[in-house]
Each structure stands twice: as structure tokens, then as C-alpha cells.
Design a protein around this nucleic acid. Structure first.
Lengths: 344, 344
DNA sequence: ATTAATTTTGGGAACGTTACCATTGATTCA
DNA sequence: TGAATCAATGGTAACGTTCCCAAAATTAAT
């Protein structure tokens, strides 16, 4: 097969400019030791024939591709899209390219993507694993920055994440202040660290507050609207203890709960209050607006790239960045602390 | 600088297996002409030392990188995220990697990204240009598939898009049937082909229907919630003709309009009906649910990759795929055709 | 002017593959 | 048996850079 289109190379430049390719290479890589006049001559020729550096060759020789990998579970979830956007921005600033892979929550696909990243010889990767104990991530052979809870399992890797414990606490503080002392929870799939960590934070909160919760009202769901809806329906149909409040571990599930409430002929927040977790934009246009614990998605993406670039450039560190969450209060929570309910 | 980590190469395999690197190469590229026993021997050695093909070298030599580029204006808009997800899926199936770039509507960044794509030597690119007449896209030096209206300007390139004319017509049909004979419009920035095409479709519709619209009520906005909100506020504050209905050219702007209506103390759909364009998931959880003209985002992404792969593999064609839109009717439209209004 | 120091250039080798052609060994056919 | 065919392998030149060291060319120092 023909070796690609016939684009000009540094050898073409060298011939036309009457210098050696070494000199051309020096000019193009901003090496100081070149006479001003030759530099200009070379640059002119390069421009005139529309030269464009072949990154493949450069990478092969130098061992650096200037590409970073981002592996996330679901690009179609605005939270992850925001993370990607933040990473993209920062990578772009650093003149790096970002290879984005979305596994659609499929561990097999995740594994394939990891392989692709290694084969593409990215300089490093940012990963939010679908499976916590993703195989051999610590022997990945290149810098890896983790996003999210799985980081606990790889203490030697850098990581960025939001402060789930703090987020849960400010969320529960808010609920408590509104009189919701026994919220129900919709959490992610069992076996995932994210879930365990969330529930641990909940338990810790209640034990600190010295509130005896007894058994928590917990339902499990995938991180989608549909699955959140089903989980909420289950909660609502439970005999006896119909929840007045539902706290979900991501916003999509919260929207699902909202739909379920409506479907059941109930009203949010009058009958059921809902608190989400993520802070995606859609919460602003839902009705009622979704109150939620906001994770700094964009910032997470940016900081992850910062960390990764640091690692690539020799920072041996396994730095861990934990970013605080903050509350966004909208209409989905009712105040049931006084006798008659009132929306806030 | 050290030439990257010391990963095993085909030469290591060759030595260990006692064959030449040519033979190893043949085995690894599934060449038929290898004796079964040697094939196994080589594969065993490869596996045992954890060999992983160096794509850079392969690409440099073969002229193919197995990477595709996707350049979109805004990864954080769920519409584009869906397109990316679709493209991702298909690329993944074809064993290709997808390099995703988001320009954030910045023409300068778009240009940079295009340069990155060329330097990364992607085998081809899928582009939705921020600027219609993006410089030299037809002399890009590799296969390019366009998404969206700009395709008109490059008749020699393949393209995928949704049928805007048809989408506008079914949208206006619906509005007309509900008694909204004079909707206002919020459209994208002037100078963009997408806007012109939309308005042309509107005019054509009314002229076919033989309805004299006089001057259309049009406001301009960026493709964001905020900007849509401002445009809607302007529409609502216009003396005389307060619109009973707003038709926007994307869903985010429609959400902005929704917010504006609420802010103005009005109600959607009782006071103002809203029709969007895109079909992003958020429309399901807004209140009222957003009626919208749905573009097949995921399919667009998939088909774009299909087309691109076709072009890469020699299909000289400049195929144009136009996918139909369909209506999604939710609560944001009122029926004003009878004497008293009623929500549908 | 001669030598030393310094700047500027050139000439390969190397990065890890694939592409192509030549060679070997085994098999078939007359 | 010998030539002819075919399967299986080996050898070497690319691909377009960067890297390193040596060679000129220039400048400074004595």
C-alpha cells in the first residue's frame, strides 16, 4: 500500500533550503543553536510548501505522543461530558490531544479501550473505572490518574475526586434542617466502591448526629433515568413506609425519581422531596428544579489533566486531590419541619 | 531523552522464538503464509513477554493510524455528546480509535484542533464546522465527512445530517394544527448556514400553505440556555405582538425560553407554547416536558463513521445522507385552535 | 597569525514496524 | 531424477523524525 499521501517532509525542506535535515529539525523544534538567517530561510521554505510535522515519526523517535487518554463510563451523561470538556480545555492549553473513550458501563469495552490507549501510546491516561478493581491499572506502564472512588484501591496512583463524605454531609444537613430525618436512598450497583463510600458517609453522619436510623431505606439502580425511575417506584410502593424524601447518588436517577413521583399521581416537592448528586445543567430546567449536591465536574477534568501532565513530567507523586461539593438548592425539596408543609 | 519505556518489540519475540522478525510480523498481522507450529510458538512467546504492538511504528510505516477525528462545537451539549457516543460506538466496532475535539464555538480553537487532527495523522475526520466556510476543508489531505448544513458549501465531500426542511415542516404542521399560525422564532447566529436554511424552510412552508406571514418574528441567540433565555425575554417584552408560541432551533434555547416564560410570571403552555429542535433527554424531565423535533443524534454519529470508513477504504464517493426528523410531543404546547385554550 | 573556544552545521544511527524481494525447503509433476 | 511449483521463511530498505557525535565555520584570545 502506498505510504499515505505525499506530504512534504523535512528532507524536502532541507533540499530546497540547501541545508541538512538536522538543521531543519533544529529549526522546527525551536533549538537555539541556529543562525538567524538560516532559521528564517528554513521557516520560509517550510511555510511555502505547506509543511506539517509528522507526529507519528516524532513520537516514535522521541517516545512521546503528546496524546492523553480519557476513559469514562458514559459520555452521554452531562456530568461526564462536563468532565471531558474540562479535560479537553486543559489538554488543549497544554498542546496535547485528548483521546476520549466511553465504555457505556461495559467492562469488556472498558478493557478494549484500555488496550487501545496503550497501543496508541498515549503519554498517560485518566480513568474512571467501571470496575473498581480494574486489572493491572497500577502496572499500566504509564502515568495514570484516577477519577472517583476506585482510587482507594490504588494508593500509588494520583487521583482527583469530589469529597463524597462532605457532599453527603451537607446534603443530609440540609435534609435534616428541612425536617427530613428519614430520607430514602437510591444508590448505585452493589459491589461498587462508590456505593459503599456513599452509604458509609450516610451512616457516619447519623452516628455523629446521634440519630438512630435503624435500617436505612435503600434501593439500588444503575446510573440512568430509567433505572432511577424504577427504583423510585419500588420505594413508593413499599407498604408502610412511604418516603417523604429521596436522596440519589446521581442526578439522572433523581430525574427518574421525579418521573416516578409524577407517574404515581404524587407531587414533588409537596408529597415527595428529591435531592440529587452531580449538578448537571438539566436540574435547572426540570420542574421543580432539582436540588442537588454539586460536584465540580469541569474542574475535576481540568485538575486531572494537570495531575497527569505533572506525572508525565516526572512528578513521581501520587497526589490525591479532593474537591469539595456544594449545594444547589432549587424547588425539589419541601420544608416539613413545621406543621404544614411548605416548599422552599 | 530515553526513548520511552522498555516495552518488548517484535525483535525480542523473534530472538526468543528463534525466527526472523519478518515471520513474527506476519504472525501478528494474521498473514496466512505461516506454518501452524511457528505461529503458535510466536504467539506463545508474544503472550509470555506481554508484547503489545506499537501502533506508532505500524502507522508510520503503513500510512494508516486507525484513528478517526471528531470535531464538534460543544461536547457539553447532550446533542453533540450523543453524536459522539454514536460515533464512538461505531468506531469501536471497527477497531478504530476516536479523537474527540470540542471547539466550544471558538473558531480559533477549531482551527487548532483541525491542525492537531492532521498532525496526529488521523485516517479521516468528521467535522461540524463552527464557521461554515472553514478554510480549506476540501484540501484537507484526507477523507472528511461533514455533519450539518455547512455541507452545502463542499459538494465534493460526504456528509450526514438531518432533514431540516422536513423537520421544520412537521414542526410547523403541528403548530398550525394547534392554532399557532404565527409562531415566533429563536434562531442561531446570523451568517451561519444553519440559520438561513431553517428560515428558508419556514418561508417555504408558509408559501406552500399559502399563508401570508408578513414579517417573521425572529430573535437571534447562541446555542445555549442563557442566550435562549435572553432572546425569549426580548420576544416577550416586544410591544404589541406578544408571541403565543416560540419555535427554537435547538433544545437548549428552548429551555432558555422556558425559563424566560417562568421568570416573566407567565406559564408554559397556557400563556406561551414552546417547540424545540434536537431531542435531547432533558426535554423529558423539564416541566412541562419539551415538545421538540427530534434529530437522530446517535444515528448521525454512527452513519458519519460508516461514511468515513467507506471513504477511507476507497469509496471515492461524496455520499450525502439525510436522515428524517420526527416529532416528540410533550406538554409544552397548548391547543389554541378552539375558543378556550387547552393543554395537550 | 596561530591556537583555543565557540557557534553552527552535517552525517549517520535509531525508534519499531511493514513492504518487498530473495531464499530456502518441501512437494509435485513429468 | 530433475525440473517446476509452492509454501514458508529471512534479509533489508523504507516510513519521517530525533538524537548524538563529529566536522566545519566563525569568533575570541594570546
Amino acid at each position: 500500500m502506498k505510504p499515505s499521501a505525499n506530504r512534504p517532509t523535512i528532507i524536502n525542506i532541507a533540499d530546497l533550503a540547501g541545508v541538512s535535515k538536522s538543521t531543519v529539525a533544529r529549526v522546527l523544534s525551536d533549538d537555539e543553536n541556529v543562525k538567524k538567517s538560516t532559521r528564517e530561510k528554513v521557516l520560509n521554505v517550510a511555510k511555502s510548501i505547506g509543511y506539517e510535522r509528522n507526529h507519528l515519526a516524532k513520537s516514535l523517535r522521541s517516545g512521546r505522543t503528546g496524546m492523553l487518554g480519557l476513559l469514562i463510563p458514559d459520555i452521554a451523561n452531562p456530568f461526564w461530558a462536563e468532565v471531558a470538556a474540562g479535560a479537553q480545555d486543559r489538554a488543549s492549553d497544554a498542546n496535547a490531544s485528548l483521546l476520549v473513550f466511553s465504555s457505556n458501563w461495559d467492562p469488556k469495552r472498558e478493557k478494549d479501550h484500555l488496550k487501545s490507549l496503550r497501543q496508541a501510546r498515549v503519554d498517560g491516561a485518566i480513568v474512571n473505572p467501571v470496575e473498581d478493581s480494574i486489572d493491572g491499572l497500577d502496572r499500566f506502564g504509564m502515568p495514570v490518574v484516577l477519577i472517583g472512588s476506585s482510587a482507594e484501591l490504588f494508593p500509588q496512583l494520583s487521583s482527583v475526586g469530589s469529597d463524597i463524605k462532605q457532599g453527603v454531609h451537607i446534603g443530609l444537613d440540609l435534609l435534616t434542617s428541612l425536617g427530613h430525618t428519614q430520607p430514602a436512598f437510591i444508590v448505585g450497583p452493589s459491589g461498587k466502591l462508590a456505593r459503599a463510600r456513599f452509604l458509609a458517609a450516610v451512616n457516619e453522619y447519623y452516628s455523629i448526629q446521634n440519630i438512630d436510623q435503624g435500617e436505612l431505606l435503600v434501593e439500588e439502580a444503575e446510573y440512568t433515568i430509567d433505572s432511577g425511575r424504577e427504583a423510585a417506584l419500588k420505594l413508593l410502593s413499599r407498604a408502610g413506609s412511604k418516603p417523604l424524601c429521596i436522596f440519589t447518588t446521581n442526578d439522572l436517577m433523581a430525574f427518574g425519581a421525579l418521573l416516578a413521583v409524577r407517574e404515581s399521581g404524587l407531587n414533588c416537592p409537596d408529597d415527595v422531596s428529591i435531592l440529587g448528586f452531580d449538578g448537571i445543567f438539566s436540574g435547572e430546567i426540570s420542574y421543580p428544579g432539582l436540588s442537588t449536591v454539586v460536584k465540580p465536574a469541569r474542574k475535576i477534568g481540568r485538575r486531572a489533566v494537570d495531575l497527569l501532565l505533572g506525572n508525565i513530567n516526572g512528578n513521581e507523586g501520587n497526589e490525591r486531590i479532593v474537591l469539595p461539593c456544594e449545594l444547589k438548592i432549587r424547588g425539589s425539596l419541601a420544608d416539613v419541619s413545621s406543621a404544614r408543609y411548605q416548599a422552599i
